[in-house]
Design a protein around this nucleic acid. Structure first.
Lengths: 101, 101
DNA sequence: AAATTAATTAGCAGAATTGCTAATTAGCAG
DNA sequence: CTGCTAATTAGCAATTCTGCTAATTAATTT
């Protein structure tokens, strides 16, 4: 669930892509222009973000429009907050093997 | 900054360590017992978390007590929240949004 | 000082991540 | 169909991550 999201957000470029998408949907090319990395590299980061469901892709003619999926972003933030103990409304993965007290 | 924290939280075992520390400080050995991984492996995860400042270590005689650093955890959650713009859910006002307008 | 307990560091192999260039798919225009 | 633009996928090398066992440090105890 949010496992993939947090892992995806661990990379600075991918976070910056999310920042770039705050102002609205953008094409792969527009996003690639924002970074020093090559287009294929950005494309792969987009694939990782999409795999984590942090963004959605919509084909518009020859272009592909990407937009941020804010609900998954909120879930990820909740997951981090849940590590503190103050639950934001979502339950965290509590599948650690029981032992101790 | 929060770069290290998010990266550190990307690993499931490290998140579970943080969960385990919600209920209070624990020694390295107590934490190692909670997981299938070997003690050295858990110890290395602890080092990663400490490097990210997500936990603190305090020597108590022969043991070392680890506790969660909630403020850094909060910062990490804020960093994720800050990735959300006024795209869709516009009720949350994040703090690093540019104000001059 | 030697032994014991608690924990880390060292070293290594296997897996995953990153980022590049080159090749390929997808859609549209002529 | 051919060519053109947008974007992804395929490979490949370099780097980082993970997790193990063995060795080492640290503090206590006898």
């Amino acid at each position: 669930m949010e496992i993939k999201a947090l892992k995806a957000l661990a990379h600075p470029v991918r976070r910056q892509i999310m920042v770039a998408l705050r102002s609205g949907a953008k094409t792969s090319g527009e996003l690639a222009d924002l970074f020093d990395a090559s287009w294929p590299t950005v494309s792969r980061h987009l694939a990782t973000l999409k795999e984590a469901d942090l963004i959605t892709a919509e084909r518009k003619a020859t272009s592909i429009l990407y937009r941020a999926n804010t609900s998954v972003l909120e879930d990820a933030a909740s997951a981090v907050l849940a590590l503190i103990g103050a639950d934001d409304g979502d339950d965290l993965n509590n599948d650690m093997k029981e032992a101790a007290e």
